[in-house]
Design a binder for these strands. Structure first.
Length: 860
RNA sequence: GCCUAGGUGGUGGAAUGGUAGACACUCGGGACUUAAAAUCCCGUGCCGGCAACGGCGUGCGGGUUCAAGUCCCGCCCUAGGUACCA
């Protein structure tokens, strides 16, 4: 009876200390080996500590890193903290504790937990978005955007809760039968326009779309981003307003249906609504607009199945046939898309059809459905016909197909100066400010008009000015010089926003009021002949800002004179693999790409796209199959698992649960399987805990493996290598289980084979691999050992298994030599007992032979 | 509504159009043990049969094919995302 003990709690801390002391996984700048940059989405260090979802993706990237290192790459695999964020601020409001302190505590807890799992990062490259030496460069990037004219200020509607006196995030607003309410306190909330910084991401829409072609991302993610950008080609059509000088521009993707436009709809927020409404309808229209304010875009879209709207009394003239059509307002038209107004063609648009039916507006079919549309007994459409086809009811265009008609209509309108080709995007500009404390302050000063004129142009945006009414004054924005960065957050007494929704920074009067040197840009608390009076911007940046470019800072984290050194950038370039959740498929990845493209334009980086290859890890659900959450009480804590089973077992099990990309439930019972596997591995090498090696191991490597085992070894090297490369860890582990089961059965086996096994499993279970490798007499870390090579010859076997089928059903098999003829295979099938039984009384119609695989006899 | 992903034993899952259920968990039986833990062996999709074996079986209904979990068409269900985008 073997007496061995796999004491993970003793060996795991030992090797964690070893890796740390020896800088085993340090990335070496300018090393001759090929570089490989693996990036994880960095976490928000919450007060709750790690949950089991974090280590899933992180274990995968850690394993991949160890694999790539063994393959001879100079691997960069860093970690950092996306540490600005709402929960820390809320905690500060509640307790008065400075977010900086909370953040430091949370970060050290997270770091400790990551280390416990055996995750080895190059900690010398750690970044923290709240570190002034980091956000100095976040602010610097903003000044570049500002100077390039890619930033502007605008009043934007945001959720505001008068009761709480604060702006709310979408997720803090609940939909209730009584209307939208705040999550905290259940108070009524409304959309209120507040002064915001906005970034012109739409200027980059086409490049963001084109760039997707070149990257190795999941197709579904590319599609998601492309849909989000939503490029659509169409026309802008200008409608005159009857008995008025005003005109209304609409955007349409179907100019071919212009003859079928029977009414116009303005978004309730459209600037012309008030002007065009006839006096007797003003009250009703105002009431409708008020009601719209309480609805989010999503609500206007989804929950409001029943169309609402009002005719505002005015009429427009269809430019193509001079027909007079009524102007309506309805909340199904959004002010943020296109021109905020549409021409409604109920016969050929579902929403317009629904609306026209409800309000009894004409439905004129101008595209011939050629009998394919759904109609009632009277021959009227029962739903919109949205396909293309030949035109009708369209004067000279009758008979023309949709595509040609689109061109013809636009040409016609262009001649009359009533329209033109236009491209529209669903993508909206990026609302880039928050009325909060715990974020990067904007490096912006507001000055009055006459002072602005005296300020050196280097502090102003090129080709534009940014002005806004602040307090009662119209002020102009200038940016701080690089030397004044970072602009740090002031200490304040209360983290609560002011009652009018302004940022808590608006209380910090000492910090707020400055004197700005017109030439040098230096800010002082005392005025002088060279200074102008200014007010600092009180908004802060959103959490996205810091996470938009962190992957660049890992390359050169300490640089105080540049965001990144040019030579280092040229060496490390951009991440070769980016692993992170699909929940960031659009926003984070799109914003980061936008900033990267701007940085590319100004020469900071040399590649146009930041993330060459992307992989989404799935979510781990609770044992009940529901999303893990404190309130459900189904949260699994990694620390408990490590205490009971060890980090290697946790890592292995996380990867064994299922495909990395899948959403899968945690099952604590199942962990027994991988725990047994590791104990079995331990016993293969050690027969008691006193450093006694298993005598089955031939230390001289003179024992030869039988050919079947030898083939299995090489098949395993082959499969495991492929699976690791594709992050298919679950199948790699089952292959290793098969191999270990075989090796355990042998009477004796060469040490070399055991070591190869250890190298194969080291990426996933590094502690036990190091320990056993060490006990086999090796002095170097197993991570220095080269990845085993497959001997292709050994994969081949002399015999192959031929499957026998009758009418496609398995009825037996046999082993045949590799070099056999089709006839031999078919003959041996016909001789097989079970096949004969199936052939009884039937004739063979056909015999299919797939070389080295299958014989299928078709009988009747 | 729309977009995306998915639906395979009691459970997690595996399967270049070629033996469905690898590898595990669970459960049952046995060995070792005073006993337990650990370990080892056998069985474990469903129905029938002592067994050999036969039938059925990858959400549902069709289709293509010698052969379909895999490809095509229609439907149902689940999860995630969402902006009635004109």
């Amino acid at each position: 009876m073997q007496n061995s003990e796999y004491n993970f709690s003793k060996i795991e801390p030992k090797w964690q200390a070893y890796w740390s002391e020896n800088n085993t996984f340090q990335a070496i700048n300018f090393d001759k080996r090929p570089k490989f940059y693996i990036l994880d989405m960095f976490p928000y260090p919450s007060g709750a500590g790690l949950h089991i979802g974090h280590p899933e993706g992180y274990t995968a990237s850690d394993a991949y890193k160890r694999f790539k290192k063994a393959q001879g790459y100079n691997v960069l695999h860093p970690m950092g903290w996306d540490a600005f964020g709402l929960p820390t601020e809320q905690y500060a409001i509640k307790t008065g504790k400075h977010p900086k302190i909370t953040t430091t505590e949370n970060v050290s807890r997270f770091k400790e937990q990551l280390k416990q799992i055996g995750l080895c990062y190059d900690w010398e490259r750690e970044v923290n978005t709240t570190d002034p030496q980091y956000f100095k460069w976040t602010q610097w990037i903003f000044t570049q955007l500002f100077k390039k004219g890619l930033a502007y200020v605008e009043e934007k509607p945001v959720w505001f809760c008068p009761e709480l006196g604060t702006v709310l995030a979408n997720e803090e607003v609940l939909n209730t039968p009584e209307g939208p309410r705040s999550e905290r306190g259940n108070f009524p909330v409304e959309r209120r326009p507040i002064r915001q910084w906005v970034l012109k991401i739409t200027d980059y829409a086409d490049r963001l779309l084109d760039g997707l072609k070149a990257v190795d991302w999941p197709d579904s993610t590319k599609r998601l981003q492309a849909n989000w950008i939503g490029r659509s080609e169409g026309a802008k059509v200008c409608f005159d307003v009857d008995s008025s000088d005003d005109t209304i521009d609409v955007f349409t993707t179907r100019p071919d249906t212009l003859y079928g436009a029977t009414y116009l709809v303005l978004a309730p927020e459209h600037p012309l609504v008030h002007t065009l409404t006839t006096p007797e309808l003003k009250d009703a229209v105002s009431a409708y607009i008020e009601k719209t304010k309480t609805k989010s875009d999503l609500e206007r879209a989804e929950l409001n199945k029943d169309k609402t709207g009002l005719h505002i009394g005015a009429f427009a003239i269809n430019p193509i046939n001079k027909k007079k059509i009524p102007i309506w307002i309805s909340d199904y038209v959004l002010v943020s898309y296109g021109t905020g107004a549409i021409m409604a063609v109920p016969a050929h648009d579902e929403r317009d059809f629904e609306f026209a039916q409800k309000f009894n507006i004409d439905i004129i079919q101008v595209i011939d459905d050629c009998g394919t549309a759904k109609k009632d007994a009277g021959g009227n459409l029962t739903q919109a016909f949205t396909a293309s086809g030949p035109l009708k009811n369209s004067d000279s265009l009758n008979g023309m197909d949709s595509e040609s008609a689109k061109k013809a209509v636009i040409e016609n309108l262009e001649k009359a100066n009533k329209g033109l080709v236009e491209v529209n995007y669903k993508l909206r500009d990026w609302l880039f400010s928050r009325q909060r404390y715990w974020g990067e302050p904007f490096p912006i000063i507001w000055v009055n008009e006459s002072d602005y004129a005296q300020v050196n142009a280097q502090f102003k945006p090129k080709g534009t000015t940014i002005k806004s009414k602040i307090g009662d004054e119209l002020l102009y924005a200038i940016c701080l010089p690089d030397e004044s960065l970072p602009l740090e957050l002031p200490e304040i007494e209360s983290y609560k926003p002011s009652a009018d929704g302004q940022s808590p920074l608006s209380h910090a009067s000492k910090w707020l009021e400055v004197h700005f040197n017109r030439e040098t840009g230096e800010t002082t608390s005392q005025a002088s002949n060279f200074t102008v009076r200014g007010l600092r911007e009180t908004n802060t940046m959103p959490q996205w800002a810091g996470s938009c470019w962190y992957y660049l800072r890992y390359i050169d984290p300490q640089n105080s004179t540049a965001l990144i050194d040019k030579e280092l950038e040229a060496y490390w370039k951009t991440p070769d693999l980016y692993i992170g959740g699909a929940e960031h498929a659009v926003l984070h990845l799109l914003y980061a790409r936008f900033w990267h493209q701007v940085l590319y334009d100004i020469g900071v980086v040399t590649e146009a796209e930041p993330f060459k290859k992307l992989f989404h890890q799935g979510i781990i659900l609770g044992e009940d199959g529901e999303k893990m959450s404190k309130s459900r009480g189904n949260v699994v804590n990694p620390e408990t698992i490590i205490e009971a089973y060890g980090a290697d077992t946790l890592r292995l099990y996380l990867m064994f649960l299922g495909p990395l990309e899948a959403m899968k439930p945690w099952n604590t019972k199942g962990i027994e399987g991988v725990a047994r596997f590791l104990r079995k591995l331990w016993r293969l090498v050690i027969i008691d805990n006193d450093y006694t090696l298993n005598p089955k191991i031939d230390l001289t490597n003179s024992v030869k493996l039988d050919s079947e085992t030898d083939r299995l070894v090489h098949q395993s090297i082959d499969k495991v290598s492929h699976d690791y490369e594709n992050l298919g860890f679950n199948t790699a582990i089952s292959q290793l289980m098969i191999l270990l089961n075989q090796l355990s059965k042998l009477e004796s086996l060469p040490k070399e084979v055991v070591e190869q096994f250890l190298v194969l499993i080291a990426p996933l279970a590094p502690h036990i691999a190091e320990e056993l490798f060490f006990r086999l007499g090796n002095e170097q870390s197993i991570s220095e050992r080269e990845w085993p090579k497959v001997d292709a010859q050994k994969l081949e076997s002399e015999t192959v298994k031929i499957i026998f089928q009758v009418n496609g059903k398995y009825r037996g098999d046999t082993m045949l030599p590799k070099e056999h003829t089709k006839e031999t295979a078919i003959e041996s099938a016909k001789k097989h007992e079970r096949v004969i039984a199936q052939l009884d009384g039937k004739a063979i119609v056909k015999a299919i032979y797939v070389p080295n695989k299958i014989v299928n006899l078709v009988v009747r």
